[in-house]
Design a protein around this nucleic acid. Structure first.
Lengths: 137, 137
DNA sequence: CTTGACCTGTGTCTTAGACACAGGTCTAAG
DNA sequence: CTTAGACCTGTGTCTAAGACACAGGTCAAG
């Protein structure tokens, strides 16, 4: 199987396959013409990688998990602990985005009723520089 | 004013100041010893940049806004249109994070009751590979 | 003069791929 | 057999927004 073939069969891009290969997550054989040749084992490996990415694991996480399982050990404990970390991070980012979204939409609606002003020596844009979010009661 | 001095006075890092300087958003004079020297004008410029970053504008956006205002034009229309774009992006990312968070926390709770399994030829980790999110009714 | 604390600019690194590009492969037409 | 064109290849570079490393410069105290 060639790069593009593998990629399409799992609904991803050739660049993604190349990226994982570069990192050593996939280990294709070299075909005669120098092209990479992927076996069925690589297909299921890639399937795993894509599932894990979809669940929020980082590529580095996945590398770790694959290493563990290559030693014949169960990766389950590692997987549980990693997802706990990732979920915490996601939660933080989520809260940050929630706050940002609020700020932005508040700014947008405020600014629609405000006039344009030319810049001055110490003010680039009064919309931004005078913005203060209205606090929720 | 030196780099660190400026950074501390506005509660940011020297690296951030250097970064903006590298991009040309700040234009310090060169002091005798080769160090960068920031004037009061740079202070208010940086203050503006930090406010805009805080509202979700990208550094590229800010560059655009600064260019506009340097020509003496009002940046307000540009600012309104940019924040609209950024807000839409933020909304998309927000929804994506919301979905991801749900998936992850669902996985976490499911996996706590599932046993460990050793890897097999075509399965790295059954937790991940057999995961299917329970759909909300 | 020397020590040590702090500061400097420059260059490299990060994520997870996307994109550019020069060249190779392969199929069909001539 | 040759040629054209479509498609594919690996490698190298780019992205955002700084963080970090590092060799060397500066400056006040002793």
């Amino acid at each position: 199987m060639k790069v593009t073939e593998l990629a399409k069969s799992l609904g991803t891009t050739a660049d993604t396959v190349r990226y994982y290969t570069r990192l050593g997550l996939l280990k294709p054989a070299k075909s005669v013409n120098g092209y990479k040749s992927y076996s069925n084992k690589e297909v299921s490996r890639l399937k795993f990688i894509l599932s894990a990415r979809n669940l929020g694991f980082s590529v580095a996480d996945i590398k770790q998990i694959l290493n563990e399982s290559e030693d014949g050990k169960s990766a389950c404990p590692l997987v549980r602990s990693l997802i706990k970390e990732r979920l915490e991070e996601t939660e933080k980012q989520f809260q940050a985005m929630l706050a940002l979204r609020g700020k932005m939409s508040s700014a947008l609606s405020q600014w629609e009723e405000m006039e344009d002003k030319a810049p001055t020596a110490n003010m680039v844009c009064h919309l931004i520089e005078n913005f203060e979010q209205i606090k929720k009661a």
